[in-house]
Design a protein around this nucleic acid. Structure first.
Lengths: 228, 228
DNA sequence: CGAGTGCTTGAGCGTACTCAACGCTTGTGG
DNA sequence: CCACAAGCGTTGAGTACGCTCAAGCACTCG
């Protein structure tokens, strides 16, 4: 892990939705309390059980957030891209991390300490509002995910996931899987074998059409959401 | 639904963890922007798809928060008691509610409008920090729940749930189910039949002992977490 | 070219769901 | 006060969905 302090991490701050309503001067102020760091592919940014003093914002690259269940099985919680952040639990609650954050490729992040963030929140309540916004929609996503696990069949979860991937404008009905089927299986709470089989089934039902390994065309969005 | 404006809703404000670090004067200020409302047993406080301008804090009673999956099945997300709040998604993101909130018994709540809350957050950043704390631990709980659904068997989920119910001091190994087995099944993503069977199994394995319909004594906490 | 990884396909099996019936408690009305 | 309905919990039998294990194939990279 190497440390940088060149000005280019301004790009990081600029990217982050929770900051993007600020003026130039405010951005400058934030940049001064932000630390830029890079992680190699496969490196762990933090692990469950560790404490932490920082909020981590992805600048470039991807970070895999996953959990281990009580019995030791791994589940992919989400994948962070540029502008996404993580570490809020340990930061706000001063407790330990409950999941693992692993760089999927060489990744550069910006980190901001608890004290600095607290200062910013006091000075700029708008940032707090943005944070509250982001966290509350994350609760929503996570609860939706939980509901799907508990009430829907594997087919339905996979199908719903494909529909969620479609861009909301609806201008394109082609989706690209943002991860391997192995990771997708972990995210959907199933196995790679089942993902493979179900994708084939959906294709045989003429609901989707495989264009390439990771590219699919959605043929019948409505019926994808109402399987059986 | 009836409206009250008597001073007793101060009790409400006092109860809420996000406000409990404030001075008397600040509490008075908050009380002035808080609206007290009561709901009959079974009444819906809001439903999915509705917009809302308020954060709702439970004063007395219980509120069932549940979701419907895409295919129409219901899942219990959580049960609110005095001091818990809900409605943050619609409030902060100005979107529609994604779940239903139903009074389980006659319930009194306090509601605070978006504008008022925003004002408070700007004036008292400590409230924002409390909110961020609460939301981030809710994310954690929800993700843990999702992970359990996706990686653990029904036995394990039930067993983990019983262990979670134990009070953290560990002074008592007797737990009381806070809901019916029907609701518990919905919360755990299974059926009432299976809950009944699994509880019996756990008892036969000498891991728990049934004391009454809803009361169980935990005999072997460690093995409850490592079934199979 | 061989090793490694990811995806596919097959066969067998176990968990938990569905449907159905019955016992038990609770509350309501005759 | 008893009768009956309604809801919850229990138990049983049958079924199916998805997991495990295993082998084979395609593609990439050293």
């Amino acid at each position: 892990m190497s440390q940088h302090h060149h000005l280019s991490h301004r790009g990081c701050v600029r990217l982050v939705p929770i900051f993007n309503h600020l003026t130039e001067e405010q951005m400058d102020e934030i940049m001064q309390v932000v630390q830029s760091t890079t992680y190699e592919k496969g490196e762990l940014i933090y692990r469950a059980g560790e404490t932490s003093e920082v909020l981590t914002i992805v600048n470039k690259g991807n970070v895999r957030i996953y959990r281990l269940s009580d019995s030791g099985k791994e589940q992919l919680v989400r994948i962070l891209g540029p502008g996404d952040f993580t570490g809020e639990l340990a930061l706000f609650n001063e407790t330990v991390h409950e999941h693992y954050a692993e760089a999927m490729v060489n990744t550069s992040v910006c980190q901001i300490s608890r004290a600095s963030l607290q200062g910013l929140l006091e000075k700029y309540p708008a940032i707090a509002m943005k944070l509250l916004q982001t966290l509350s929609s994350r609760i929503d996503e996570s609860e939706q995910q939980a509901t799907r696990f508990s009430t829907e069949s594997t087919d339905q979860r996979l199908a719903s996931y494909l529909v969620d991937l479609m861009d909301p404008e609806g201008k394109s009905d082609v989706v690209v899987l943002p991860m391997s089927q192995k990771n997708l299986a972990s995210y959907l709470g199933t196995t790679p074998e089942t993902v493979s089989r179900k994708l084939k089934e959906l294709e045989e039902m003429n609901l989707i059409k495989r264009l390439s390994t990771k590219k699919f065309k959605i043929l019948d969005e409505d019926n994808l959401l109402f399987l059986d």
